[in-house]
Design a protein around this nucleic acid. Structure first.
Lengths: 152, 152
DNA sequence: CATTATAATGAAAATGATTTTCAATATCAT
DNA sequence: ATGATATTGAAAATCATTTTCATTATAATG
């Protein structure tokens, strides 16, 4: 097991621009609704539910419907730009995904998410496959706790 | 990281008996509905949803209601006897929990769950705390794949 | 720039999982 | 056996999500 390395991201504005361009490249149209949802997700420091995004997105695009939030999330998830956050407190929130293989550290209080990499589970996985007979495709490594702000 | 060790369990009958006794010790009454749900969970080789338990439990206790399934699951989860299985395919299934700190290997096809221990993430956790400032309470380590039966 | 095919929209209704309410019933201490 | 009350199932309510559908907005084309 190597040391964890916290992953840092590009700026929200840039992220938002890239995502919209990518959506367009994939044949999707850029609309006010999509822009609003993408911006909200790109700026978020914590994980957001569809309802959160609806509320935040409405500030930018008055007519935004909850249905479009779901539809945009669906597309962003398909394209690997966004991922669902699963935790003891629920599984209804989304956060922007990071490239490559990395994992999450989630604040149980405010939903803030840090991504990290540096887990090295190859040997462990191979042993587990041998012992269990399973063919392993994927793993999740997640930590839950309280972030610095919420500790105060 | 030490080697994974697959955890084996006591017999379904014994498990069921222990759980019911424990429920009673906690002040809960033993009823036909609870017995049916507990038996189904104790015998399960794979994770089961409330609807699964309703169907299976009805064979043992004709009048079983779905509501009682949910209420029993709630209590068993409180007491740490049962735990929810979270995965890419959903988070609606339950499996009997194992004592101590251990993790899951889940078949994406049939829902079969193997529990294992032997992860040693203490150092990794300490480093992650230092780097992030989070106070970490808990972690999940889960593997997903296809079990031997489903490979055939 | 105007036209147009059609992708995307929001509202309302539908769905699926879970929870609440409530009057009837079963459990267990006495 | 009795009685206090925990537990029940059915129906209704709730919450997250999806589907339907007629209308509107986007972007490719002339």
């Amino acid at each position: 097991m190597t040391h964890p390395q916290i992953v840092t991201e590009q700026s929200p504005a840039e992220k938002s621009r890239l995502w919209l361009r990518y959506l367009q490249q994939q044949g999707y149209r850029i609309t006010g609704s999509r822009r609003a949802v993408v911006d909200a997700l790109a700026q978020a420091e914590r994980s957001l539910t569809a309802a959160d995004l609806y509320e935040i997105g409405r500030a930018k695009h008055k007519g935004l419907g909850l249905v479009s939030v779901y539809r945009t999330l669906e597309k962003l998830e398909e394209l690997g730009l966004v991922q669902r956050v699963h935790g003891p407190g629920g599984c209804h929130a989304y956060i922007s995904a990071q490239d490559g293989h990395n994992h999450m550290l989630v604040c149980e209080n405010c939903g803030r998410v840090e991504m990290f990499e540096g887990d090295d589970l190859k040997d462990f996985t191979r042993n587990l496959e041998k012992q269990s007979g399973f063919r392993i495709h994927e793993h999740w490594l997640q930590f839950f706790g309280v972030c610095t702000e919420c500790q105060a």
